[in-house]
Design a protein around this nucleic acid. Structure first.
Lengths: 337, 337
DNA sequence: TTGTACGCGTTATCAC
DNA sequence: GTGATAACGCGTACAA
């Protein structure tokens, strides 16, 4: 550390350590000239408080964690960046912690959080979220907010995209595009993973419901690539096929492993957040972009509320609408360099 | 916090608090059956040490920061992810802190680091790096390692890509490709920013040196878009033109604002890490991918050395070769979901 | 092998 | 207004 302690400063200015402490923290009880004197000397000596000691004494660190699986997916890193600035402006430091989607690391991180790591956290759990590790937080009275994914049944606020509506919007848009070109969609493929987490489940639901509304059959068993690759009994009718999944990676897996799709040329793609796949395999590619800013700010506000006003009510999930649909090249890129 | 303190546990098992403390930390002096007893009871009571108190007593937190501008650029987030796992396996927690490229936030972060935030840090500074804020770290004796960018003159280890060689390799490859297609490169555009930081300077140098070696003229004033847009006196000869910059964004700015390029069809592009730009504006697009893993591990090893063996020698920069050149679609994507 | 006592650097609670 | 003094929870020489 900086070497210079409060006691050093106190000795230098001739006041007691407690008076100096008060002076530095703008306590109204100290005389203004005393404060001036202390401030000036602190500056001169290059004094800076030891934050560990302060945290121990105050019982809080004015620090918040943003816990996430990794940094590669926009839904994970973008809200983290936004929340970082948001908390910075309010006197808190936000630290980002990765659990790498590993349950063991995840448990360790929460453990550490519960024992003095930070005052609270925004949390994107691993998949599938079991809600076991979160017990230590609840027990320790550490406020936290789930973002995007969440474990149902835990008494914590949840902020997530309205995924049912988003998936339905994707279907509607693809159907309209196909209709317009004279070749209406003949079948839909569901490449979501409803059993993985609530997000995937909601998207699968929205996609299938929209297809049903349009009277279009959905092929593939339960949307899982396993079912798809093992050969679905359903043979899709002739005509364009619309595929949907959370990202290009899973969509591609479905496309390449689903026998019924072999040789089909008229394919339409729908994914979330960005397109990281081939450009030529699909006639139309549509991306649903989540509203990262609104999600981050909502979660931050909820957390700050829990931080300063005690545990907030475990309200029902906040569903944020997507910010819109667009093509693979139109996804907004935040500034860089 | 968890509520349960060491003293509670001590009272429960009937031993002194210090004995319990030792037992939990596997001190060889405590009898094995005592340790067993303590361990079992600790488990039962759900005891977990208060990390703030431990940090204060021990004088260190077994925590490391990875300080970076943001999460959007691969060179920033990928090493952070890799270093996170690396330190995790060695008993340290790595926390990621953003400074958003803002000098004020940057100074505040370093200040906080110097006063108990963590035991050390890997640091990607803002541009242009001035080396002023780093003084607090040196003064406080906090070990840190510069990654990618760095402020010259600070006594800290530096790990960065061999950017001179990388830029030269890009030029050679583009020249070879053009040659092969029968239309050799006629001119080169330098869209780096040598005055911004050492990385940009090295790339500009490598690019220009390679061009000179091939006897090909470089147009644009000092490589800066300002110079380019203000109309360089040099009119490039007819034939393919090779543009290089750190990313597609700056390359595009140069292409669109440089009068001499207006209407030219035969353009070749060279960038670093990934391509986030139009696919059709260039005949060839080449990406130099930095070796994030080697960079992260090298920096981590240097930091750990400083952490455990005292300040390591301020050796000269470690230059890591790029992992290779590839097309815009072949950039490796780490696993997601 | 276990217990005592003090230190880590601040903040908070009392007196004065 | 200011000064002692006790927390905060844990680690560790030193003593026993």
């Amino acid at each position: 550390m900086s070497g210079i302690r409060l006691s050093d400063l106190a000795a230098r200015v001739g006041f007691d350590i407690s008076t100096v402490s008060r002076a530095l923290r703008n306590d109204p009880r100290v005389r203004s000239d005393t404060r001036e004197r202390v401030m000036r000397e602190a500056e001169a000596m290059g004094y800076h408080p030891n934050l560990t000691a302060r945290a121990l004494a105050e019982g809080r660190s004015r620090t918040v964690w943003f816990i996430l699986p990794g940094l590669e997916r926009p839904i994970e890193r973008r809200p983290a960046s936004i929340a970082s600035r948001w908390f910075l402006e309010r006197g808190y430091d936000l630290l980002i912690v990765q659990h790498h989607g590993d349950p063991v690391v995840y448990a360790r991180v929460l453990e550490r959080l519960a024992n003095g790591g930070a005052d609270g956290a925004i949390l994107i759990p691993h998949s599938p979220p079991e809600g076991l590790a979160e017990g230590v937080l609840v027990e320790a009275g550490i406020p936290f907010v789930y973002l995007d994914r969440y474990a149902p049944g835990i008494g914590a606020p949840v902020v997530t995209t309205d995924n049912v509506m988003a998936a339905a919007a994707l279907f509607d848009a693809l159907a309209a595009a196909a209709e317009k070109s004279g070749k209406p969609v003949a079948a839909a493929v569901d490449a979501f993973f409803p059993e993985r987490n609530p997000v995937e489940a909601a998207r699968s639901k929205g996609w299938r419901e929209a297809a049903a509304r349009h009277g279009i059959p959905v092929v593939g068993k339960n949307g899982s690539p396993v079912g798809i690759s093992s050969g679905s009994p359903t043979v899709p009718p002739a005509g364009p096929i619309a595929l949907a999944g959370s990202n290009a990676r899973w969509l591609e897996r479905a496309r390449l492993s689903f026998d019924a799709l072999a040789g089909r040329k008229e394919l339409l793609a729908a994914v979330f957040d960005d397109w990281r796949g081939p450009r030529t395999a699909y006639e139309t590619i549509l991306v649903a972009v989540q509203d990262f800013r609104t999600m981050a700010v909502s979660a931050s506000e909820l957390l700050l509320n829990g931080l300063e006003n005690g545990a907030g009510a475990p309200e029902k999930p906040i569903l944020v609408p997507i910010s819109g649909l667009c093509g693979p090249d139109d996804v907004a890129r935040p500034d860089e360099l």
